[in-house]
Design a protein around this nucleic acid. Structure first.
Lengths: 221, 221
DNA sequence: GAATAAAACGAACGGTCGTGCTATTCTGTC
DNA sequence: GACAGAATAGCACGACCGTTCGTTTTATTC
């Protein structure tokens, strides 16, 4: 039980820490503030971690686990292919808007900017977490290709790149610029991306006969 | 001359400060470190600004001026329409890769993430700077519509939104993820965006008859 | 060359940071 | 109820932060 109690306290600490990190960044998270927010002494809290570095790492790990639980895992029980991708994106947007757990926006996105020039365990972790995420998007897109939902010459890397860029844009416009149309623009961009992935916008092989009408040849650079 | 000398010193300070802010963020910029980098005393440097807040604001202003000088101004002497937009994007990418003045990536993008939950003059400035930039993109896109380079039902807001998202994605993938394909993916995404803006991909009226073949109805949840 | 103003300096202050050390309180076991 | 061990608290430290202030250097003007 001492074990369970310990885990419980640590969970409370990390949950609080994540909220602070969401608002103030992973570097703006200080042990003193965190202790005050949790309601215990600096040193008492400190004892749970091997130091500030470890605390930061634990926070990022928790944030990543939360992301996987809220976005990826529920999406991966959806039907293979496009439905799964739609679910993923839907969960993702909802997760970004979850003011309860992320009152200041995505911890991982913010941490990316904070640590991108500071080599070390934090940077390594963030890099790996994001690369894993992108790989998962690519995998999901490939499944959609296999399921014939997406055209089979789709560049899944490019697809994942574009989708991730749109999410970054959404986060930026919504959070920094407070653009009320952020949701609309994201929806349209994502919709366009799906459409291009599905059918033969710029089709390479089978489509020409279908498009006989006009669609005058463009440079297609 | 005392005036000129003072301005000169201040310029040196701000240039150095921008490099530091590029690497460490606008909050990671400390007066002590800056003084050491410039080669003068903390207090001597401090006297040039009304405090840390003013220093940060001056740095952001300088960064914005640099951006306008390097990206916007040279683009706006190019021919109206698509060429101008292409020039703008080209300058933008080159500016982001200018390790000389931005060894740690865009100061404005990083500052966005840093200050987005900290109300105050810094946040106000960053918000305005970015909104101005987006407005300029929209204006350039509208000109391209007027010049018949882009189709006349183009949503210029959506265009600017997408373009900015791609730039954010580029910055993120290149800097954080060190993706060697970032340039390629950006080029393709931007190219696709141009193509859609130019011709009638996803046209609203004339296309449906063309797609008769399969595209079996999905739930499209 | 003396007088004056601007610029830069050096030392110090109060505050907060992360971090150790030692004591105290809590909790479950015999 | 004594005991052991974990959890927490209290306190002090050294480092660095932004800032202030009095002094010294540097430049300009007569």
């Amino acid at each position: 039980m001492s074990e369970a109690k310990a885990l419980n306290t640590k969970t409370v600490i990390l949950d609080t820490a994540m909220k602070i990190a969401s608002r103030w960044g992973i570097e703006g998270l200080t042990i003193g503030e965190l202790a005050k927010a949790v309601g215990m002494s600096k040193s008492g809290l400190f004892a749970h971690f091997g130091g500030k570095d470890q605390l930061q790492l634990d926070v990022l790990k928790s944030a990543t686990e939360n992301f996987v639980d809220a976005v990826m895992r529920p999406a991966f029980v959806e039907p293979r292919g496009e439905p799964r991708i739609r679910a993923m994106v839907k969960n993702w947007i909802e997760h970004l808007n979850d003011e309860g757990s992320l009152p200041g926006g995505s911890i991982l996105i913010a941490a990316s900017v904070e640590v991108d020039d500071k080599p070390g365990p934090l940077r390594d972790f963030v890099q790996k977490a994001q690369n894993d995420l992108i790989k998962n998007i690519e995998r999901a897109a490939q499944i959609a290709v296999d399921e014939k939902h997406f055209r089979n010459d789709l560049d899944v890397e490019q697809f994942a790149w574009s989708l991730y860029s749109f999410v970054l844009g959404y986060h930026h416009f919504k959070r920094m610029l407070e653009d009320p149309k952020a949701d609309l623009h994201f929806k349209r961009s994502f919709g366009g991306l799906l459409e291009v992935a599905r059918s033969g916008a710029i089709p390479k092989k089978e489509r020409p006969k279908l498009v006989t009408k006009k669609t005058k040849k463009r440079k297609s650079a």
